[in-house]
Design a protein around this nucleic acid. Structure first.
Length: 550
RNA sequence: UGCCCGAUAGUGUAAUGGAAGCACAUGUGACUUUGACUCACAGGGUCCAGGUUCGAACCCUGGUCGGGCAACCA
């Protein structure tokens, strides 16, 4: 499949910067906080950050933004790296940690203090709220603003040395308590937090805030274009202020809108709720929009990348339809998946004129249009399983492809068969049907070359393998589960998003390896689950085929 | 009653002062040893009101609607 490489407003900026000579090389970064799993929203940022670097022959750093030891944990680091690699991006040698810059950040904080641009504020958090004022009214100057440079230097040193309790004071930028932008009303730069850091251990008891840390990280790494989501737009003046005061390399922050998708939620907190309340089976539950969940579901990295490319990058807040993504997944899977036959709701067919002790082996193509993908061998015998829905007493219209008494149907890749009788139980349920095979029609249309309307799939009952099938569907019943502010989004969980059933599989399928993908013909795309084994086959339904039969 | 951002078919985007395109979705039809794939056709759009201009989706002014911002989170 072709990956979209269309331009966007950020690339326009980059090209202007290259043309004007403002930049000669392009450096970006993907800066996850290691406090959770990546989801498809992050994939948009990853594709933008790494994709932009690739497009302009630049570099994209993977940087773990580990400035808050309360939230972060090493356990997420590996998962994040795995997901990025799975998506198909490579940071090479360029893996960094915000915590590696703690020493330099501290030095920059001292430099700001010496310039009179930062001070230690001993106001309790609640009190500062009052000083900050409201959007419509200016704040007032905190007492700490009156400290001399020497006092601030001494106080900050004490903060660093652990003289104060957690929360006793913070280092603040001295900007403008009357600014219409609340983020410029003397924002906190450093807080005291006695927490064990996964990387720096107990070296520090003060940690930089995002606003102070992020721009410095970008600057130290020579990032030229620092892309982030829209909610940081109002932080940009602070980003620029810090860099200007420090007079160090000045990356450009550019904001774009997040990816939202219908029928799911994207917030880390809400996904965590689903996991904690056992509404899904962990972060890699195939119903989750996490990259590990989507991978387990059978979605492909190529489809995700293509999706992000086609969606484009803008500042418009939007919710994209999942249908577009599903369409791209089908495009990819249609091209790459081996075909197989599986019967999910079986009824038995007895071929009256076929020998009971005979097994034939048919060679069927793995892909109808790609000979190079080879063939597979499928056993055929007197008793078959077909879908219950492929028999009907009276056809509703002339589009029905299956059996009714007297109807001739093609058994995919095998013979033409005519239904001769049906057996039902006392409740009228079909138990099995009888058919006569046209033994001269093997693999074709019969000796007279007649056309047959329907082709259905089947599995030899003698050789069938039983498997567990996990049919996945959309996580929520509402396009936007968050739209109703008065309702808990969890009320809209789709109870049918996971339906476990069994199936009769073509025998070769048992030997699949976890994450092998197939198209079960006429049903959908499936992949072997992580827990799949030859002894206990488990397949996840990635998606149905388009326009499933009604 | 503050500041910032945004608004193009149902959805996501393109057009960067010169013919409003594309994709998905929807509908109809063709083809088919998968009701898939593929192919053809169709419907449907510039938030509103002014202004500048030979010409405005694009520039200006004023509205309307939507989103964000008052963590010692990121």
């Amino acid at each position: 499949m072709t990956e979209e490489t269309k331009t966007n407003f950020i690339h326009d900026i980059i090209e202007a910067d290259l043309a004007s000579g403002k930049r000669t090389e392009i450096v970006t970064r993907f800066p996850p906080e290691p406090n959770g799993y990546l989801h498809i929203g992050h994939a948009k940022a990853i594709c933008l950050d790494f994709g932009t670097a690739e497009k302009y022959n630049g570099r994209c750093n993977l940087r773990f933004d580990d400035t808050n030891p309360d939230a972060e944990d090493e356990e997420y680091v590996q998962a994040i790296q795995d997901d990025i690699k799975w998506l198909g991006f490579d940071w090479g040698e360029n893996r960094y940690w915000a915590s590696n810059y703690f020493e330099q950040m501290h030095g920059y904080a001292v430099a700001l203090i010496k310039k009179g641009k930062a001070y230690v504020c001993q106001l309790p958090q609640a009190d500062f709220k009052e000083y900050r004022g409201a959007p419509t009214e200016p704040g007032k100057e905190p007492p700490g603003r009156k400290h001399s440079v020497e006092e601030n230097l001494a106080l900050f040193e004490q903060m660093k040395n652990g003289t104060f309790e957690d929360g006793a004071c913070v280092l603040r930028a001295r900007i403008d308590m009357a600014s219409p932008n609340l983020h410029l009303r003397d924002p906190a730069l450093y807080r005291i937090k006695r927490a064990h850091h996964h990387n720096t251990g107990d070296t520090w008891c003060i940690y930089p805030m995002y606003d102070f840390a992020h721009c410095i990280e970008d600057s130290l790494e020579g990032v030229t274009h620092s892309m982030c989501t829209l909610e940081f737009e109002v932080h940009r003046p602070l980003y620029d202020w810090i860099l200007n005061e420090l007079n160090i390399f000045h990356p450009q922050q550019i904001e774009f809108s997040r990816l939202n998708l219908t029928y799911t939620v994207m917030s880390k907190r809400k996904l965590l709720e689903l996991v904690n309340e056992n509404l899904v089976n962990g972060w890699d539950d195939p119903r989750m929009p996490t990259l590990c969940g989507m991978r387990r579901r059978g979605f492909t990295a190529a489809a995700i990348r293509n999706f992000c490319g086609i969606l484009g990058v803008t500042k418009v807040e939007s919710i994209s339809e999942i249908e577009l993504f599903e369409s791209l997944v089908r495009d990819d899977l249609n091209e790459t998946s081996f075909r197989a036959m599986a019967v999910i709701d079986p009824i038995k067919v007895v071929l009256e004129n076929y020998p009971a002790d005979l097994t034939e082996e048919f060679e069927l193509p793995n892909h109808p249009k790609k000979e190079e993908l080879g063939i597979r061998t499928v056993p055929f015998s007197r008793e078959l399983w077909i879908e219950r829905s492929d028999y009907i007493d009276v056809p509703p219209n002339n589009k029905f492809k299956g059996f009714f008494v007297g109807r001739e149907v093609r058994l995919r890749g095998a013979y033409l068969a005519t239904c001769t009788a049906v057996e039902k139980d006392s409740d009228g349920n079909v138990i099995q049907i009888q058919c006569d095979l046209d033994l001269d029609s093997k693999g074709g249309n019969g000796l007279d070359g007649r056309k047959v309307k329907g082709t259905i799939h089947w599995v030899s009952a003698l050789h069938a393998v039983d498997a567990e099938i996990r049919n996945y569907d959309r996580l929520f019943t509402e396009e936007n589960p968050l739209a109703d502010k008065d309702a808990d989004f969890k009320e809209f969980i789709n109870s049918a998003a996971l339906e476990i059933t069994t199936a009769k599989l073509e025998s070769g399928l048992a030997k699949s390896k976890p994450s092998d993908r197939f198209q079960f013909e006429r049903i959908g795309y499936f992949c072997a689950d992580l827990d799949h084994t030859e002894a206990t086959p488990i397949f996840n339904r990635t998606l149905t085929l388009r326009a499933p039969r009604k």
